[in-house]
């Protein structure tokens, strides 16, 4: 590898959930470097702050202090409009609970992020169809989410995350709700995406899933535990 480019760079990221009575310090100073094209997994016990970290990476949540640089740009004090732009252009996010819109068909769900890029409907549906085909759901394009199995819904969600051709694909326990056979199909899909050159980061608490990635990042008590290649 001639040259590596840091896609994600975290410096001393801290995040606390404050309520009137409590101050729960979830992230206590995360330092992390993920290079372009890497395929990594984040592991840790329940409540260790994996989702919190991933949400910060996905610009869905804010952090209290530290520095987060995404593709060379500092993600700090973003306006709502800027945040929307980075979410739309830079990030593909796959949620554990899929978060598909139930009143839209599979293909319309996949096409939705392109709507916010002001791409016209025909082109949107064409692209969405392409990504649905890639996840093997071409025949299910016109089904609504409630007519699809969990694995199929997860694949629709992955297609939706990919349709904008983002720099980074983030997935929070993408196999958490799936059986082992479907899980490995979804993991094969992530492997393909990685092979296509994308940076892929998944959160999981299953070791066999994590072992399919290039690197496992362990998080404990709000800190990165160790680094292994």
């Amino acid at each position: 590898m001639a040259q590596t480019f840091s896609m994600i760079e975290l410096k001393n990221i801290k995040k606390a959930y404050k309520t009137d009575f409590t101050n729960l310090q979830v992230l206590k100073g995360i330092d992390l470097d993920i290079e372009e094209g890497e395929f990594v997994s984040i592991m840790g016990s329940s409540g260790s702050g994996k989702s919190t970290l991933l949400n910060i990476l996905g610009i869905l949540d804010e952090y209290d202090s530290g520095k987060y640089t995404l593709a060379g740009q500092l993600m700090q004090n973003l306006s709502e409009k800027q945040a929307a732009y980075f979410r739309n252009r830079f990030i593909g996010f796959v949620f554990q609970s899929f978060n598909l819109l139930s009143f839209k068909t599979a293909v319309e769900n996949v096409a939705l992020p392109l709507y916010y890029q002001k791409i016209n409907r025909i082109e949107r549906l064409e692209k969405a169809m392409h990504y649905l085909e890639m996840v093997g759901l071409k025949e299910w394009a016109n089904h609504h989410p409630n007519q699809l199995s969990g694995g199929q819904q997860q694949r629709v969600a992955i297609a939706r995350a990919l349709v904008t051709e983002p720099k980074v694909l983030l997935a929070d326990e993408p196999t958490g709700a799936l059986d082992s056979k479907t899980s490995s199909e979804v993991m094969d899909l992530f492997e393909d995406i990685h092979q296509a050159g994308k940076t892929v980061i998944i959160v999981t608490h299953e070791l066999d899933i994590a072992q399919k990635t290039e690197r496992i990042i362990r998080i404990q008590d709000g800190l990165i535990l160790n680094r292994e290649i």
């Binding site: 978060n99 939705l112 916010y116």
Partner: peptide, 12 residues
Amino acid sequence: GIRKALGATPRS
């Protein structure tokens, strides 16, 4: 929330 996560601006 879903629309915002996918890149919708508050204005839209």
